[in-house]
Design a protein around this nucleic acid. Structure first.
Lengths: 147, 147
DNA sequence: CATATAAAGTTGACCCCCTAAACTATAATA
DNA sequence: TATTATAGTTTAGGGGGTCAACTTTATATG
């Protein structure tokens, strides 16, 4: 990659990353009336995608420290969006599970994020979608591998 | 855009957005020994790119509320990375300006972010860079216009 | 001119998020 | 059995944010 093109790519990447998150976050916050934080939504998303799992697994998937996961979890339990089930054999282990309320709330939240992003990404026409998916897939895997 | 492709694109977009910011943030935090937060770096970046400006202008460019800008600014002034200069004619207005220390620290921070992102984005080969830049430019402008 | 309204910033209350280290309880191992 | 490892929680300290109230200075309007 040439020097200046690389710099351009980096600047674009950081801009999109930061603006994107800000916009989505603000949008979601308004729509959902402060019901969830971005991290809480991400956690519900992981539970929706992978099913019940332990706090440790959640930490690995979401990143950060286990204490962060713990407090995040606590808040979701208090709001009754998530439930904790002790493991039968190992008493240290607790499985985290979406409640019905959590599932419903997540689906609603997710739909609103999707609608918003759809409205934005609809500016990308059919011919460009393949490029979009290809590039973003590549970037995603690069981020994962470097992590 | 087809339904499922759109969904795929959205999922990729959110993943890249969230993972990207997390990774970069963590990297920057480690490298700089907790010297700056992401938002503080963004603010220094704006001052570097556009020169001295008022708190109001910073708020407009960075987003969020003026009170958020105010406290962010306060911390940077305390660390002597930024300086505030009263406007000559309008006594309500203060111009914010990078100090020499702020400029040096920002350049160092920026270089480290760039090196990190370079190492990640170097996985994108020459033929794909054009696609990358085109797509990200498009996404950026779509985000801006929707904001 | 005097009074009302608008604008730039600051402050404080209240919340979320994070890390790091200490701590509990249980399991595994030497 | 005594030691070490693992899953999770808690606490302290700091960053971020919003919203509303509040100063101070400008501007508009009667």
């Amino acid at each position: 990659m040439g020097e200046s093109r690389m710099e351009e790519a980096i600047r674009l990447f950081t801009d999109v990353m930061i603006d994107g998150q800000n916009e989505v976050f603000r949008k979601v916050e308004n729509e959902l009336h402060q019901e969830f934080s971005m991290e809480q939504i991400k956690m519900l998303n992981l539970l929706e995608r992978h099913g019940p799992m332990t706090s440790k697994q959640l930490t690995e998937l979401q990143g950060g420290h286990k204490s962060a996961t713990s407090s995040r979890l606590k808040k979701l339990v208090e709001k009754d969006y998530v439930r904790v089930i002790p493991d039968a054999s190992d008493k240290r282990v607790k499985y985290v599970q979406l409640t019905e309320a959590g599932e419903a709330a997540y689906k609603q939240a997710n739909q609103q994020v999707n609608e918003y992003l759809s409205s934005i990404l609809s500016g990308i026409n059919d011919e460009e979608v393949d490029e979009f998916i290809y590039i973003f897939q590549k970037v995603k895997s690069l981020l994962r591998n470097q992590a």
